[in-house]
């Protein structure tokens, strides 16, 4: 059966008929726009592009595209995307979800996605608040943020997604901001092109419950051009710089991804003979 690919010329063709339900000004519009653009720039075949998402305002994203999408359960975006990619390595797989989804309920999956290094791109849409459930503190809510639902602020310290991903040894780490869509698009393209698990920390303010646009606009700076993306130590220094929030690629390495290691494993095992049911049963006679 001949298979038609689905390519598009401009972003309007990727938009689905479902109108986004996000609040005006929500940072997630920026992430969605950059994903549309990245698809066009990379000329992705929508038939072979899957966007997997978690639960939250951010989790709605695939519904607004004409790509294949999977909107699963809260916190499980990474294992779901892992299954999609390992089952069919030809697909381009993008995982998106909130900071609560990825660092609270689903926090246990992140290090394992890193150590498997499956060739998927994970965009964490970080608004430092629980958007969908209306304003509770999230793992990235900094003590200095005041939230409607939290008159006394949070008592815990906030997690830093970039620091975590560097510590977990994710093979591609970048940070972007919904206030800088061009750069966001460029880095999405880079992340998707990266062969292995790529992580993009997308600062995506919630205008309804934690409007941090001003906070970040005052602090974001591009990562200096002289930064060596293969130097983990220098990447760690960047995230620790006080008063600045760096945008750009922090780290990158080119170790083998799990799909490739599985393929090699299969080849090695099959050099002694391909599997057949008869051979399988011979072990039990």
């Amino acid at each position: 059966m001949p298979q038609t690919n689905v390519h598009v010329q401009n972003v309007n063709e990727i938009k689905s008929n479902v109108v986004p339900v996000w609040c005006p000004g929500c940072g997630d519009y920026g992430v969605l726009a950059a994903i549309y653009r990245a698809c066009v720039i990379m000329d992705l075949d929508l038939k072979s592009t899957v966007i997997v998402s978690g639960i939250g305002c951010s989790g709605r994203l695939p519904i607004f595209t004409k790509c294949y999408g999977f909107h699963g359960v809260h916190g499980r975006v990474l294992p779901t995307a892992t299954g999609v990619k390992l089952a069919n390595p030809k697909l381009t797989v993008i995982a998106v979800g909130g900071d609560g989804d990825g660092l609270a309920i689903g926090g246990g999956h992140f290090p394992h996605a890193a150590r498997r290094n499956v060739d998927i791109t994970y965009i964490m849409m970080d608004n430092s608040v629980y958007g969908l459930t209306k304003g509770q503190g999230s793992p990235t809510t900094a003590p200095e943020f005041t939230l409607k639902a939290l008159p006394y602020g949070v008592q815990e310290e906030n997690l830093n997604p970039v620091a975590l991903s560097l510590a977990y040894d994710v093979s591609y780490v970048a940070r972007v901001f919904s206030g800088a869509i061009d750069q966001m698009t460029d880095l999405f393209v880079k992340a998707i092109q990266h062969k292995g698990f790529s992580f993009v920390h997308a600062i995506s303010p919630c205008t309804a419950f934690n409007d941090t646009y001003k906070f970040y606009r005052e602090r974001v700076v591009p990562i200096p051009a002289e930064h060596d993306v293969h130097n983990k130590k220098s990447a760690l220094d960047l995230w620790q710089t006080k008063g600045k929030v760096y945008l750009g690629t922090f780290y990158e390495d080119n170790r083998l991804d799990m799909g490739t290691t599985f393929q090699k494993l299969s080849e090695t095992v099959q050099s002694k003979g391909k599997g057949t049911m008869e051979r399988l049963f011979d072990q039990f006679t």
Partner: peptide, 24 residues
């Protein structure tokens, strides 16, 4: 691996089942 398939040990059962749903 002899049958071009993949078997993985996941970090927990939730990852196991959701990755199966993804694969299917």
């Amino acid at each position: 691996p002899k049958f071009d398939g993949v078997a993985i040990q996941t970090e927990d059962e939730i990852a196991a089942i959701t990755s199966c749903i993804g694969a299917s």
